[in-house]
Amino acid sequence: MSQSLDVITALVAEGLRKHMTTHRKYLAPSERQAIAADSAAVALAVLVDVTGGHDHIVRAFDDGTFTLQHPLIERLTDDLFACEILDHLAAGEPIDAGRYKVIATDSQTFELIPTKDQP
């Protein structure tokens, strides 16, 4: 996660540099709030991206086991403890070894899409 924090710090610093001209050292409160909101949105987008995006990711192994990486929002809100996708995968057929993105086709059906970095 340290690399993620470095990326976020760099993006926030760049956002501040864009708003500070050569001879300007202070920002009005309204400007600071707008910059903070913009920087927070960028930071959240980067954080979601570097933690796997908005999708569930399955890593299946040759021995028939698998792991499920939940999206950041589920990890932050503890929704992963009531995850229907995990229940569905655990009750289903064995998954071929590889890495997959889970796509919901409807509220009860999920499709596994192989990712580009498939082993």
Rank of each mutant, 00 (worst) to 15 (best):
D63L: 02
A41P: 03
R59W: 10
E74R: 02
H23M: 13
I35G: 05
K25A: 15
H70Y: 00
I113Y: 08
V58C: 09
A37R: 14
I95Y: 01
Q3R: 14
T77Q: 00
A82T: 15
A34H: 00
L44Q: 11
L80W: 12
D62K: 05
Q33R: 06
Q108Y: 03
E14F: 09
A40W: 03
T65D: 08
S107K: 12
E14H: 12
A10D: 05
T77C: 07
D117T: 01
A90M: 09
I85Q: 02
Q3P: 04
R99N: 10
L27K: 04
I73F: 06
I95K: 02
R59C: 10
S30D: 12
Q108I: 09
I57V: 10
S39G: 15
D62R: 02
G52S: 02
S39V: 10
Y100C: 00
P29L: 04
A43T: 01
A45T: 06
A37I: 14
Q69G: 09
L112H: 09
A37C: 13
F81T: 12
I103W: 06
E84F: 12
A13H: 11
I35H: 04
Q118F: 07
M20D: 08
D87K: 08
I35A: 09
R24N: 13
V48T: 09
A13R: 13
Y26I: 15
I95V: 08
I85L: 01
V12M: 12
H88Q: 01
S4W: 02
T65Y: 05
A60F: 05
V102G: 00
Y100D: 03
E74N: 00
P71C: 04
A43P: 03
D6F: 03
A10T: 00
G64I: 13
L76M: 08
A41D: 05
E111V: 06
A45I: 06
D78H: 14
L80M: 13
S30C: 03
H54F: 11
F81G: 12
H56T: 01
T115H: 07
